[in-house]
């Protein structure tokens, strides 16, 4: 069986983003999606710190400390892009103006609850940032994550054990083993990694899946 690697997952997400979409890519793994957006589509990237039309990293000589992304890495602005303050930026997020956001996750429940901000460990310093606004605000919430943790537990669960980021907010999962839609209480498996059968996937999780390939 060939698991999809992180770039392959990012590429699958990127190919599903349509022309004209306003998109926020969360910190970490989702940032990679930007590398695979089809160049023939105009897709506008939003950054929570007040940028629409965010472009790729600059050349070292062009780094501007006033122009960074949510992960605080230097970025550029595309022609037509603009800046705005945090009030407007989060109105875009919370107010349902973004078409898609892509987030990472510790766990996702079968009802689409998302846990991605806090492990809940007593010594952990919690940090939430814009995760809760993105989770409940974007029209579509896509999650990129491994299907299993490093210790082999499935991250798609009946009920999240980690503190929640948002309730019933996840629409689709892009994992290393499968793409799964969360739709009206059902988990619809749309695509499986090469060599993996639906039964293989079902055996890895305690939640009930339905095989309904996209094509």
């Amino acid at each position: 069986m060939n698991k999809w690697n992180r770039d392959q997952i990012a590429q699958k997400v990127a190919l599903d983003i349509p022309e004209g979409a306003y998109v926020n890519l969360g910190i970490g793994l989702p940032t990679r999606v930007a590398n695979f957006l089809p160049p023939d589509r105009e897709i506008i990237l939003h950054s929570e710190n007040g940028i629409l039309g965010m472009g790729p990293a600059p050349l070292p000589a062009d780094i501007d400390p006033d122009l960074i992304n949510a992960g605080k890495e230097p970025v550029t602005l595309q022609p037509g892009g603009c800046y705005f303050h945090h009030g407007d930026s989060f109105a875009m997020m919370r107010g349902g103006h973004l078409d898609i956001c892509v987030l990472g996750a510790f766990q996702v429940s079968r009802r689409g609850d998302l846990a991605n901000w806090h492990t809940g460990a007593p010594d952990a310093i919690p940090a939430v940032g814009g995760a809760m606004d993105l989770a409940i605000g974007a029209k579509k919430v896509y999650v990129m994550m491994d299907f299993l943790t490093k210790t082999g537990d499935c991250k798609l669960v009946d009920t999240c054990e980690y503190p929640l980021t948002g309730i019933g907010c996840v629409d689709r999962l892009y994992t290393d083993l499968a793409i799964i839609d969360i739709h009206q209480g059902q988990l619809l498996v749309r695509e499986l990694a090469d060599g993996l059968t639906f039964d293989d996937l079902q055996r890895l999780t305690g939640v009930t899946l339905t095989y309904q390939p996209a094509h």
Partner: peptide
């Protein structure tokens, strides 16, 4: 505080509002 709630609570103060209802 979730970042958007931080922003909107600051805005509420500036705008003279008593409180806000937020989904976040």
């Amino acid at each position: 505080v979730p970042q958007g709630n931080l922003a909107v609570r600051i805005q509420a103060a500036g705008a003279g509002l008593g409180a806000i209802f937020t989904p976040t």
